[in-house]
Design a binder for these strands. Structure first.
Lengths: 226, 226
DNA sequence: TGTACATCAGTGAACGCGCGTTCACTGATGTAC
DNA sequence: TGTACATCAGTGAACGCGCGTTCACTGATGTAC
């Protein structure tokens, strides 16, 4: 499983920085392969690159800095993926759907990065991953903009765009993270699941002809199902 | 932070099993205090109980068995908490609300157990925490029953109770787990957040007078907001 | 009532392991004179 | 064109640490005779 060591040739004079890239790439691959952040040990990464452990310290102050750099890459990749999904889509509600689909897809394709970014402990590196960075990575600002646009166009019931974006994020994250955390649960097919979740967001569960405060009128109208 | 050692008196002849309980209790407290599963080392637990590390092995085969036992306790506590919340509530939609509120409350009050139970890696102890146990713990069956009841009463748009219960779980888990994972994000107040999420589930985002497939009619009707 | 003995509830010391990190070094390579 | 030298890109060996786990043991206590 852990390849012994490919033995990396020494870089030429001015090209020392290439090792930094190689380390990050190896760490990224290691994370995807093993699926556990704990697999990112300095020794394992050095092995994967084909270099001795102390070499890591030529480019990173300590292990934390390395892991943060790996995460930062994933954050960027995530944001790019989301942005690509809404390229040229004018309709705000449609943009929200596209971003949500891209969000889940990214999460399922990169479960470990997703886990570290959005399901990990807030303690490690909380300072580094500031609110703005996180908001950017998960496309929050773009969802917020789309929600505001939909509200302005009179498409949404709610009038608080920030709350709406938060709810959408919660919903999509809920589906994504449960699929990642409990893969053996008998979930619906991912597409069905996501489509249903988005439909839930858009249209809700209750019948349109029902009273909206059900506790006031218990089981009075037994509407027959279509 | 880590209290050195309270020094536990040796149990009397037939009461060896009391140590097992003490170990579990100490581990539970340790988990709540530190907020990290990695804090549950055999040595740390032994220290907290006031006993030597090998004593742990009188009652647990290895560390994994211990951690699983701790989790099992939390699973039970969670289920009891959810059941208590719907005690005597007849209306199914109301039951769903009550369970959701209890779910989030439990999650926020016991973030680390919640993290381990529902946000952790599926690898460790996946066999032990079978689908049925998980479903029981998170009250899935009770939500499922409530959804089915609501469907039978003609209260819900959907007709697939399992899908509905899954969506509710996803939604509530989404809010809970994001609050736990990203506590420094400028979330709405938890009650507002949850209420909005449940309202979202029930009634959706879109205006009721809007076409349901917005991609077919882009920005045609600029309904003015109330 | 006295005593030998089995059992119970633990303990002390040590094992091997992988970890992050440090330190003094090495050998190739470009550059100044 | 030749050579001394600074610099660059790393390496080998070792440090101390905390971990899970094992092993032989100890001392109190109940029980059989």
């Amino acid at each position: 499983m852990t390849a012994p060591a490919p033995a990396r040739p020494r870089a030429r004079r001015g090209e020392g920085d290439r090792l930094r890239e190689d380390i990050l790439a190896a760490a990224e691959r290691l994370l995807l392969d093993t699926g556990r952040e704990s697999a990112l040990s300095v020794r394992a990464i050095a092995d994967a690159v084909g270099v001795s452990p102390p070499s890591i310290y030529l480019h990173f102050a300590d292990r934390d800095e390395l892991v943060l750099a790996v995460c930062e890459r994933h954050f960027q990749a995530f944001e790019e993926c989301l942005l690509a999904a809404i390229q040229g889509v004018a309709d705000p509600v449609q943009r929200i759907r596209r971003m949500s689909e891209a969000y889940i897809r990214f999460g399922l394709e990169h479960p470990e990065p997703y886990r570290i970014m959005f399901m990990g402990s807030p303690v490690d590196g909380a300072e580094e991953f500031s609110q703005e960075k996180l908001a950017a990575a998960c496309g929050f600002d773009h969802v917020l903009a789309a929600v505001q646009e939909a509200i302005d166009a009179g498409r949404f019931r709610i009038d608080d765009a920030f709350l709406g974006a938060t709810l959408l994020w919660s919903t999509v994250h809920g589906v994504t993270s449960l699929l990642i955390a409990k893969p053996w649960f008998p979930w619906p097919e991912p597409e069905v699941h996501l489509a249903a979740a988005l439909d839930l967001c858009e249209r809700g569960l209750l019948r349109l002809d029902q009273p909206q405060k059900p506790e006031k009128a218990k089981k009075t109208t037994k509407a027959k199902r279509p």
